[in-house]
Structures are given as structure tokens and as C-alpha cells.
């Protein structure tokens, strides 16, 4: 267990090809001890490939993986000693819950008494104390998930990998297990890499989020950074900025973008020159207001409890997603506007 006390896991230009397809193009990342990292991206972005490469289930095409100064990408999965929670849990169906959880310790040839106490401890941690003799098939989805987590953490791995662990659960259970994962991570403090396509999950669980698209890192940052100031329009779109629009930018006293006939004050992210650009606004930041400069006709609107969300079209047909505090009707013309610091501008 010398690996347990590592300082940093370092991915150095990790790449993976499938034939001519580059599934991963040079991912570099340093994970600190005890850190919770979420790999976030749409399906096909390479996040599962990245996780499998880290686990050793898939060889790298180029690049390397280091645990402090020990190179580990040449080791097989069984020699890395990482824990992994699979999407479909991958519990051994012919072994009892206790046997499943103790499997990793048995592979390490631990004494029987130690295995027993550590399994019991792990079962207490995931709150499954009475289920030890059941087979996985006799458990509910949430319970199976707990067994999978216990099995991965009982060996006290230096790193736990989780591959969309909540995607097979219903919405209520997903929230519950999310809290469980946060609690278990807090009490054990082992570094975790968590793959998901759900930005809510990533935002609520992770210390840092890595956004992947087309096999490349788009942005690495804290949840607050990603939510408030995504570095790229792709990331913005993924973080809920549904209005990603082509625009023109002028740089003067303040940075201004044009939308139809309107000119709006905005916040530049990486714009240094005037000319074509991309702007991003969240629907909840775009609302009808008295001095709203963007006229648009409501197409649809739906009631979401406290307010209304809807789609409106500008004169040139551009669709805008907006939020309104009062009821709006299709056909009604609104004057939409947003705070300058809520309008992000990116170089095109």
C-alpha cells in the first residue's frame, strides 16, 4: 500500500486512437491527493475512454501516466490497485455481498480475520450491514450501487474511478446516492475521478471539473469557475448557456455586441479584437425588462413553478431562450435584455 500516500497523479499527454479515430487527443491533468475530479462531457467525448485508459483496461496510444515519480501506464489493471465503480455495477452475480466486497482483499492474500473486519467496516460505511449474505440479484439498484462502492473502496485504493455510477438509477435515488458518494468521499478522502454527462452531478460533487469535447480538454476549473465563466462556447453550452449566438463585437469604452438591431454591453472572455464573435447567455439571465433592447415574439412558454421559461424569435428568425417572471402568451412581443456581466463574448 505504498501507493496510497501519493502526492499527485499526473496524466501527461494521454492519447488513445481507435484505428484512424483519435478518441483522446493529449489529455494532461494533475490530480492532487484526496481531490474529487469530474470528467464531464457529452457522449462520445472520450470521457469513458479516458477512464478506461487510467484504469489500465485500455492501453494508451501515446503519452504516460505517473503516480508521483512511478510510471504506471505500462502496468496491467490488476497491478495498479485502483478502485473502480462500473456503470452497471459489475457485481459478481455468483458471490454474496460479503464475498463481492472482500474480493479485492482476497486477491491481496490478506489474513481472514482482517478481511472480515474490513468488509464489515465497509458495509457499515455504505449502510448495508444486514445484507452480507444476499446475492447481488436479490438487492435493489441502489443497494447494488452501495455494494459496488464498498467493493471499490475496501482495498483503500490510491484512486477511485467511477464510470457514470448513477446513470442506471431513477431520479430520486440518484439524488440520494449523490449525497452518499459525497459523504463517503468526505470520510475516506481518497482521490476520485468521476465520469458523468450530467453537469448537475459534476457541479455538486467535484472539487474540479474537466470538460471534454471531441477527445480534447476544453476547460479545467472549479465548479464556480465553470458555471460563472466558461472558457469556451462549447463549455458554455454544456453548462446551461442555451443562447449561443453569432455576433459582432466592438471594443470601445466598454465591449459591445450586436444582436439584430440591438447593441448590448457585454463581458469579454477571450476577445481581443473587434469583428465576428460568439456570445453566450443563460435563459435565466435573459428576461423581459422595461429598457430591454431586443424585441422578440413569444413562440412558446411553459410554467415552471416560480417563473416561466420560453422561446421567442427575433425579426431575423433567431430563436432566444428566456425567463419571464410573469405569464407571457405566444404572439406577444417582449423586450428582452440581460446584465452586461451575464453576457459572455468569445472569439469566433
Amino acid at each position: 500500500m505504498s501507493l496510497r500516500n501519493f502526492q499527485a497523479l499526473r496524466l501527461d499527454a494521454m492519447s488513445r486512437d481507435f484505428g484512424s479515430l483519435n478518441a483522446l487527443k493529449g489529455i494532461s491533468l494533475t490530480v492532487g491527493r484526496g481531490e474529487f475530479i469530474a470528467l464531464l462531457g457529452p457522449s462520445g467525448c472520450g470521457k469513458s475512454t479516458a477512464l478506461n485508459c487510467l484504469a489500465g483496461l485500455m492501453p494508451l496510444s501515446s503519452g504516460s501516466i505517473w503516480l508521483d515519480d512511478k510510471r504506471i501506464d505500462t502496468l496491467g489493471p490488476e497491478a495498479r490497485g485502483f478502485g473502480m465503480v462500473f456503470q452497471n455495477y459489475a457485481l459478481f452475480p455468483h458471490m454474496s455481498v460479503r464475498k463481492n466486497i472482500g474480493f479485492g482483499l482476497r486477491m491481496q492474500n490478506r489474513p481472514k480475520a482482517e478481511i472480515e473486519t474490513r468488509v464489515a467496516e465497509a458495509m457499515r460505511l455504505v449502510r448495508l450491514t444486514d445484507q452480507g449474505d444476499k446475492l447481488p440479484g436479490q438487492l435493489s439498484g441502489g443497494q447494488q450501487q452501495r455494494v459496488a462502492i464498498a467493493r471499490a473502496i475496501v482495498v483503500e485504493p490510491p484512486l477511485v474511478l467511477m464510470d457514470e455510477p448513477l446513470s442506471n438509477l431513477d431520479a430520486k435515488l440518484r439524488l440520494e446516492m449523490r449525497a452518499e458518494i459525497r459523504r463517503i468521499h468526505a470520510s475516506l478522502g481518497c482521490a476520485t475521478i468521476y465520469v458523468t454527462h450530467d453537469q448537475d452531478e459534476a457541479l455538486s460533487l467535484a472539487d474540479r471539473i474537466v470538460v471534454l469535447k471531441d477527445g480534447q480538454t476544453r476547460q479545467i476549473g472549479t465548479p464556480a469557475e465553470l458555471y460563472g465563466r466558461p472558457a469556451h462556447p462549447d463549455v458554455a453550452e454544456f453548462m446551461g448557456y442555451r443562447n449561443v449566438l453569432k455576433t459582432k463585437v466592438t471594443l470601445g469604452e466598454d465591449v459591445r455586441v450586436t444582436l439584430g438591431a440591438a447593441s448590448l454591453s457585454a463581458t469579454p472572455v477571450d476577445v481581443t479584437q473587434p469583428g465576428p464573435a460568439v456570445m453566450a447567455i443563460r435563459p435565466e439571465d435573459l428576461s423581459p425588462r422595461a429598457d430591454g433592447p431586443i424585441p422578440a415574439v413569444v413562440q412558446t412558454a411553459e410554467y415552471r413553478g416560480r417563473d416561466f421559461f420560453g422561446v421567442a424569435t427575433m425579426q431575423d428568425g433567431t430563436e432566444l431562450y428566456f425567463r419571464a417572471e410573469h405569464a407571457v402568451k405566444p404572439g406577444e412581443t417582449l423586450h428582452l435584455g440581460a446584465d452586461p456581466h451575464r453576457i459572455l463574448v468569445y472569439a469566433a
Partner: peptide, 13 residues
């Protein structure tokens, strides 16, 4: 399920 074998490998088998 091939994931079972991978799970075994991850646990050191």
C-alpha cells in the same frame, strides 16, 4: 458481462 472480468482485474485478480 465483460465488465465482470474488468471488475476482477481492477480488484487485483
Amino acid at each position: 458481462d465483460p465488465a465482470l472480468e474488468r471488475a476482477g482485474a481492477m480488484l487485483g485478480a
